[in-house]
């Protein structure tokens, strides 16, 4: 979980960097260039397969653990107050599942046309993005999903380090702080894009 999670965390940075160029007022010039670069680089191709595998592993492992843990938990408490436990930490599977639903919609929107059915040519991607983000329902869906992602990341970031045993009296507080910053900035960045497009493009 932790290794795949950390890889996905890295991926999100790259993903956001590219996406953010959508908001530039250059009619998608830079965005188009970056997309082209990603599509043509063999190295990126390899990494993308690692990414698919990571996502798949992350999901499968999550559900397997969920099932195991549910079995280990035994009977439910009548009164349950998990002290010290954040909402996100207790609901990682739920949050992950919601993100998965979003992911499927998201992939159907762009990835399917671009990579599988080839109905969406690379050059038309920018226009498609603008087109989709002009629909209010999509804007809401994207924004809300990013809240789920934020929560998921807020637990996942430092949790990955804990699971890998990377803790240290001096550095763990820094990791926790970075995790917080990351889990706010990345989803916020993703959420800004459709909102910006909807109102200003």
């Amino acid at each position: 979980m932790s290794l795949t999670g950390l890889f996905l965390i890295l991926f999100l940075i790259v993903h956001l960097t590219i996406n953010f160029t959508v908001v530039f007022n250059d009619d998608g010039m830079l965005f188009g260039e970056l997309v082209h670069m990603m599509e043509s680089s063999p190295l990126i191709k390899v990494i993308s397969y690692v990414l698919y595998l990571s996502i798949l592993l992350h999901i499968i492992q999550a559900y397997l653990l969920y099932l195991q843990n549910r079995k280990a938990k035994g009977q439910k408490y009548k009164i349950s107050t998990r002290a010290n436990a954040t909402f996100a930490s207790k609901n990682m599977t739920l949050l992950g599942s919601l993100i998965l639903i979003f992911l499927i919609i998201h992939l159907l929107d762009f990835f399917y046309g671009l990579k599988i059915s080839h109905t969406l040519p690379e050059e038309a991607l920018y226009d498609e993005v603008i087109h989709v983000y002009k629909k209010p329902g999509y804007v809401v869906l994207y924004t809300v999903s990013m809240i789920f992602l934020a929560l998921h990341l807020s637990q996942g970031f430092q949790s990955a380090f804990q699971t890998l045993g990377l803790n240290h009296r001096k550095y763990t507080p820094i990791i926790k702080f970075l995790g917080l910053v990351y889990s706010i900035i990345i989803p916020l960045g993703f959420a800004i894009i459709p909102v910006y497009v909807y109102f200003f493009k």
Partner: peptide
């Protein structure tokens, strides 16, 4: 079950044992 770093254990431990021990175990 498996640890998913919820840390409820640390909060309820009457001897206040830290989850740092879990990181040590993981490492």
């Amino acid at each position: 079950g498996n640890c998913s770093n919820i840390y409820a254990c640390e909060a309820e431990c009457p001897k206040e044992i830290s989850v740092d021990t879990i990181a040590y175990l993981n490492r």
